[in-house]
Design a protein around this nucleic acid. Sequence first.
DNA 1: TAGATTGTTAATCGATTAACAATC
DNA 2: TAGATTGTTAATCGATTAACAATC
Lengths: 205, 205
Amino acid sequence: MNARKIPDIIIGRLPVYLRALQRMADMGLKTTSSQELGEHVGISAAQIRKDISQFGEFGKQGTGYSIEYLIEQLREILKVDRIWDVVVIGAGDMGHAVVNYQGFNDRGFHIVAIFDNDKEKVGHEIGKFKVEDAETMIERIKSMGVKVAMLAVPAAAAQAAADQLVQAGVRAILNYAPISLNVPNNVKVQYIDPSIHLQRMTFYL
Amino acid sequence: MNARKIPDIIIGRLPVYLRALQRMADMGLKTTSSQELGEHVGISAAQIRKDISQFGEFGKQGTGYSIEYLIEQLREILKVDRIWDVVVIGAGDMGHAVVNYQGFNDRGFHIVAIFDNDKEKVGHEIGKFKVEDAETMIERIKSMGVKVAMLAVPAAAAQAAADQLVQAGVRAILNYAPISLNVPNNVKVQYIDPSIHLQRMTFYL
DNA sequence: TAGATTGTTAATCGATTAACAATC
DNA sequence: TAGATTGTTAATCGATTAACAATC
């Protein structure tokens, strides 16, 4: 498949479709249509059909999509038909919240370690984890073969930490630090900054 | 101000520019160019100039933009030249993290109350706040005139809570629940779901 | 003046929508 | 069959980039 030429914007919507479909499955539904799914996620039926059809013909005329089958296909496309090990960098409030968050279960991710460069924090327990020394981070990540990280350190420390993650072989960084990161082209970054999200709404008030 | 319709996608980038500019200001810089700002945020210089020029002529040929002046203008455009009161719904792990988060300071937001519908949690202290009963939520929000909310309740409770927020006059919801919300057109929603963000990256691994 | 950089126009590129034949 | 809904094409709409005159 020519995964290379699928626009980012389409990839960005697939997890939203997947989440809605999983919710429908939990409610015991068996099939849905582009129309119905579109109403759930706030996207036009035409766009949903077009997005999905980039990857194959998963629907049936007249009846729509099998929810179970479409979930299976989307999980495979997004590569969350497996469990990804994830490391957390930064054992502050946000690091704590992320480690204790239950929402990664069943969505393809499993936290395996948390690091901090503050010697005071190293050794402390967070949930079932002991905070590890950031000095050991690169070697530990390499030896575990971890490709996905969540970065929850202060802005001033974020770029240096990201550089280390890249060096350790991490290819996907979910960045909670309020700063834009510079990384090589083959490394993906997603940003979560609540202030940014709030500021995207106040314009309209 | 210009009555012309500004595309959402441009509004979405302005907070990122603002954050980068504030960082430059903190470092003592006085002026910048579209080129330099673009390198910081990973956006082309042409696009930055085009975005900014939607709102006025804030730069000078030959020298670029005054950082302080551009910050001032962007804050005004985004309406964060003031402090918005914010309520938090849900006193679970995420509610805790959000209330304790220091990153809203200086970015236009101030948390004023936290609510939960679990009577066990009502009255407990989180930071300097006492968790309030969700039954009182609508009246409290109305009387305080709060327009911005952060929703950190389980998926199953999120739509009902959002309906209440709308009823109370809230116009902007930052939703941490893993579900798409249905709200009237005049209410804005932004979504934060770490699993969604992670799934947007695994495709490329 | 000489060099730098904006604001803006036109061209290009990409995304969304509408429509409908195919077909379950 | 009759009705429903997909997958796809073509048209429309919108966003990005390139280029450069204006001008600090």
